[in-house]
Design a protein around this nucleic acid. Structure first.
Lengths: 200, 200
DNA sequence: GCGGCTCTGTGAACGGGTTCACAGACGCAT
DNA sequence: ATGCGTCTGTGAACCCGTTCACAGAGCCGC
């Protein structure tokens, strides 16, 4: 689709761009895993999403602005980078593509809006339940979410200890099984109930 | 620009659309004042923005989705409503317009992202300082922000009492003057310092 | 000018969640 | 097997902000 794409690679742990950078291109993940997050200046982190093969990111800064988030590789990655000028030219030529692009932006808006809402209104256990289910569906390893509690905490917007305590309760009810580096969902329905608790 | 716009009016207090509604059009404010907010099912409210003459809203739901927020009139309004089909047709015909549209969406994304970040990392006084300065600049009545403390609290994401207590401190330092229904900014620099406190 | 409204001010109690401080537990490298 | 680093578990202290409960204060209509 885009012949102008440049292939770039990234080692696990490397930061592709940081919040505040100028940024004039967006990326398609050919293979790998990228974490999108925002950082407080004291080092706290809020993870927004984890993206995998086939997903795109970095579009927000395309139209004259700074990067609003930080993108880092969770695993070795092969990316295709597409520069602003190429994107603009293509969108101008292909209105249908522009509409797709708009739709993608609207999806982003929706998910961000939902995150803000959850953050504003829902307590930690509810957010944790939602995020666990989301990660399970997305990283799809059938009921097993492979992520450390520390990373999970960043994703939920809480502390590692706080997450551990909620998981301790759930474990005691046999809703989840916890092991080093991963969490297994045993009672999906129970977590869904918790996640829905506040959503009427 | 858009001959397909339909003029509609709205009385102060009326709700134009609610979060979750299907929604297939967006709006331009010809005259009036609209508040965009998200609601928790227990009635709590987080106000996202207050829009005035010339501003547009409601674009997110244009591409097959529910409204992500609620729009209510803070004053009598005259709006122009533009339906999905007309928007799509126009964007398809005028690529440059599509690019403008994309840019507008990116701006929204930026401001939402900033809100999430503030909410996640910054304490109430900092958010209050930022919001006061924002409202002052936007509703531009030269140093006087005309809004009740209850509404301000919704906007900051805090309680009425919490806001009152912070204002009490600022008043004692002569940074602001508080009166029924409005707040006057006396020491803008001091508030800017508070607002920047955590932004490095 | 007198009820009745809404808006503001403030203190006390409470609580969700964090911070702090360790104590295991697991896994990899040598 | 021995260590060492990272991940997990948990209790205690603490704190920001909310909730609760009132007490003024400004404003409007009658």
């Amino acid at each position: 689709m885009e012949a102008a794409a440049v292939r770039t690679t990234l080692r696990s742990g490397e930061v592709l761009f940081s919040q505040g950078d100028p940024g004039d291109s967006f990326y398609v993940i050919e293979h790998g895993e990228i974490e999108i997050s925002v950082l407080a200046n004291d080092g706290r982190k809020l993870a927004l999403d984890i993206l995998r093969d086939g997903e795109v990111f970095g579009e927000i800064a395309l139209f004259g602005g700074e990067r609003t988030a930080t993108a880092a590789a969770l695993a070795d990655c092969v990316l295709r980078q597409i520069r602003r000028a190429d994107v603009l030219a293509t969108l101008r030529r292909k209105p249908d593509l522009a509409l797709d692009f708009i739709e993608a932006l609207c999806d982003r808006l929706r998910s961000l809006s939902r995150k803000l809402e959850e953050r504003a209104f829902l307590p930690v256990p509810v957010r944790l339940a939602n995020r666990l289910l989301y990660l399970d569906a997305k990283l799809g390893a059938a009921g097993r979410v492979t992520v450390s509690q520390a990373d999970l905490a960043d994703f939920v917007g809480a502390t590692r200890e706080g997450v551990a305590k909620v998981l301790a309760v759930w474990r005691s009810r046999n809703w989840v099984a916890v092991s080093r580096g991963s969490i297994e969902i045993l009672e999906r329905a129970a977590l869904e109930r918790v996640g829905d608790a506040y959503r009427k």
